[in-house]
Design a protein around this nucleic acid. Structure first.
Length: 690
RNA sequence: GCCGGCGUAGCUCAACUGGCAGAGCAACCGCCUUGUAAGCGGUAGGUUCGGGGUUCGAGUCCCCGCGUCGGCUCCA
């Protein structure tokens, strides 16, 4: 999710004389103190964010941090989290506090509470928070003298005590500083919420700050949802109740954010899948196992056909492998050692028992395959290989099954059965670098063809707890990927420890129409499996050599990519992918015949076209097929029939009337053949040009 | 897997504290013959996710299972 754009003001810097508050100096300097650009905190000369009440002990310069800046929003959100915690402890006495940091687009706070929160609780808490905000409590920073003093004050807050302990002298070992706002480097501080008139301390929390000056500087917020979360993110720890909220510099910004969420909901592929009759998840089949309906099947087939063609052109060879295998294969590949938990449990076959019930013949375990690579390795080693054959690129639309935990299954993007556009490239060490580079180009080109064009790369390196192979191998493989990634010129983000047990990887992250990023293609250099499978080729000098192996999936999974595209286009697929590309709508029955002729001409040129001959009125048909997101509607009435023409109506409501049939046909076929990803409209379609 | 919410017709949703399961859309059958986002009328459609329990009586309350949604953890 991206923050709604806001005008970026040049940061205002002012000089703060010793003994003066940063806030006073900034006010003096004329920075806005109300509205969306109001100053909420100051950035000191070292770049550290400070409360406006901060008083430097010598003259210094500070910069105003506005409410509508990324840092400003984080501070507002963090302060809002404090208000939430105060409201919770008022409403539910005895509740223990976890942590409450700002996160992307909002904040959360974790609580150890008697019973989980209900939706009604959220409504009550929001009300209580509004009251607190309106009362204008001051956020007041107080430095604690010592660890023991802190522990005395926080004796009733076991989680905070734990944080103080973990912090230890001068280190934040094991804590993510972005998440744990409670303790900072150097000193322990409390933030007191102080009554604006009486000066009484109403509520306090261990916190490194900074905060907005008063609760009134939280202009707009909303509590979003409740959830459970493990303390310090560890499954072994107790589960706390988390409340998520969002907060913004203005009501308008909040509204924009909520609208964005609503848009995402409207684009949800699970919803569109049902509305557009693309696919479903029948309960009878099981969680995470989709069926594709004819319309979804068409889109999918077009995606696959196009991908096949591109792969063929790029020198791939097509292979096939079965969905199940004896355990032996995944023992050899190491998958059973590492990933047995996320594989479907084995089918035990061919066991024979004697009369007395003892095992006469032990039988075999068969597994559904979670990956295709071991099969491709077997194809590789089915005969002797020569260096002349390399690089050998084996491609398969391979269906795999993974036993995803029940809580993580999510539509098409996280399914238990899905089809990878999987390939394994076997090459010589000399070919590795060139192969990765051309692969990266190939991948990005193909993604662009589907209308995704905003990318960055992520390099996932070895997880030191979970890997096989030698340091040298990992270094070599990682370097090869890094070099290729750097050569691509795309932004490269590091993901330390994110690799699979057998290989480092580059993943292509793509942004969709709403600015959300999705991990799509992955490229992995694997030096382990060729060894495990004892893969070899004969080099030009007659020696036996071990090939390098590259794993790559481009869409990742067809189903997942389908889901992402559905959301990216909000169901309005580009015409070349649309399940139904053209619908003919007669004004009256007597115009059906004319449209049938047009449809015939289109169909002859490979266009997916239907004529709506139902009893409905023309207006209703337009509505129906517009909501079905058909890119081209062709209407015909008396005028059109007499002129040998049709009238275009597009998804956006624009129209071009009285187009000669021949021109209409070539305009549509041209648009589809060019694989235009834009939605056709009167302004976009070059009618009459061929 | 864990915590919480939800599950009523193909879809979206009603049914006050337990008291005769209902509407719109879709489907089907008619009428209307139409120029750019819903013409009119009718018919049919249900073991209220499944199983067990409490009760004179359960869509509603309790237990178990399945599915789903939001998180956490996970994601080769």
């Amino acid at each position: 999710m991206v923050a709604p754009s806001s005008p970026v003001q040049p940061a205002l810097r002012v000089r703060v004389p010793a003994g003066t508050t940063a806030g006073a100096a900034l006010r003096e300097g004329g920075v806005p103190t109300s509205g969306p650009a109001a100053v909420v905190v100051a950035r000191d000369a070292q770049g550290v964010l400070r409360d406006l009440s901060w008083v430097p002990d010598r003259d210094t310069e500070v910069e105003a941090v506005a409410a509508n800046s990324p840092d400003g929003r984080s501070v507002i959100r963090h302060s809002c989290a404090h208000v939430l915690a105060q409201a919770v402890q008022q409403h539910f006495p005895g509740t223990k506090l976890g942590i409450g940091p700002p996160v992307t687009d909002g904040f959360y706070y974790d609580f150890d509470v008697e019973r989980p929160f209900t939706p009604e609780d959220l409504a009550d808490l929001e009300k209580a928070m509004r009251k607190i905000i309106k009362s204008g409590q001051r956020f007041s920073r107080r430095v604690l003298g010592s660890v023991s003093e802190a522990k005395r004050e926080l004796a009733d807050e076991p989680y905070k005590l734990e944080l103080i302990d973990i912090k230890g002298p001068g280190s934040n070992a094991g804590l993510n500083p972005d998440e744990v706002m409670e303790v900072g480097a150097g000193e322990l501080t409390m933030y007191d919420n102080v009554h604006p008139h009486t000066g009484d301390i109403i509520w306090s929390d261990l916190c490194r700050g900074p905060h907005v000056p008063t609760t009134r500087h939280i202009p707009a917020f909303r509590l979003m949802r409740t959830a459970a979360a493990y303390w310090r993110g560890n499954e072994q720890n107790s589960q706390l109740q988390r409340i998520y909220g969002t907060a913004w510099e203005s009501t308008e910004a909040l509204e924009r954010h909520l609208e964005l969420l609503a848009d995402a909901q409207r684009r949800d592929h699970r919803r569109l899948g049902a509305e557009l009759d693309l696919f479903s998840f029948p309960d009878e089949i099981g969680s995470g196992l989709p069926v594709f309906h004819p319309r979804g099947g068409t889109v999918r087939r077009v995606m696959e056909d196009y991908s096949r063609r591109r792969h063929e052109e790029a020198g791939y060879e097509f292979v096939n492998s079965p969905h199940i295998t004896k355990a032996q294969l995944f023992e050899m590949s190491g998958h059973l050692d590492w990933y047995a938990d996320s594989m479907f449990p084995p089918m035990h076959l061919d066991e024979e028992l004697a009369q007395d019930g003892t095992v006469r013949k032990p039988g075999q375990d068969y597994y559904l395959k979670p990956m295709n690579c071991p099969f491709h390795n077997l194809i590789y080693r089915s005969r002797g290989r020569s260096y002349r054959e390399l690089p050998l690129r084996l491609f398969e639309f391979g269906s795999v099954y993974r036993y995803e935990k029940s809580g993580v299954v999510h539509g098409l993007t996280r399914a238990r059965g899905f089809t990878q556009d999987d390939a394994h490239i076997y090459c010589t060490p000399d070919q590795l670098q060139g192969e990765i580079r051309s692969l990266l180009t190939f991948v990005l080109d193909l993604l662009r063809d589907f209308g995704l064009d905003d990318f960055y790369l992520e390099l996932s390196t070895r997880n030191d707890e979970k890997y096989v192979g030698s340091d040298e191998q990992w270094e070599q493989a990682t370097d090869a990927l890094r070099q290729a990634a750097e050569a691509s010129g795309l932004e490269l983000v590091l993901d330390p420890g994110g690799a699979a047990f057998y290989a480092p990887k580059i993943s292509v992250q793509a942004k969709d129409a709403l600015g959300r990023t999705w991990q799509l293609s992955t490229i992995q250099v694997d030096l382990q499996e060729p060894e495990l499978f004892e893969l070899e080729y004969t080099a030009s000098d007659g020696s036996r050599q071990r090939p390098y192996m590259i794993h790559r999936a481009l869409f990742g999974s067809i189903e997942r990519f389908f889901g992402i595209l559905t959301e990216h286009y909000a169901g309005a697929f580009p015409a070349w992918l649309a399940p139904v590309q053209v619908v003919g709508i007669p004004i009256a029955d007597e115009h059906i015949e004319h449209l049938q002729q047009v449809a015939k001409a289109l169909r002859a040129r490979g266009i997916r076209v239907e004529v709506d001959t139902s009893d409905e009125r023309m207006q209703k048909k337009i509505r129906t097929h517009t909501t079905q997101k058909v890119p081209f509607l062709l209407l015909a009435g008396n005028k059109d029939v007499e002129a040998g023409a049709v009238s275009f109506r597009f998804r956006d409501g624009s129209q071009v009337n009285g187009v000669a049939v021949e021109d209409a046909v070539s305009a549509i076929t041209g648009w589809v053949a060019r694989r235009e990803n834009r939605s056709p409209s009167a302004a976009e379609l070059p009618i009459g040009e061929s």
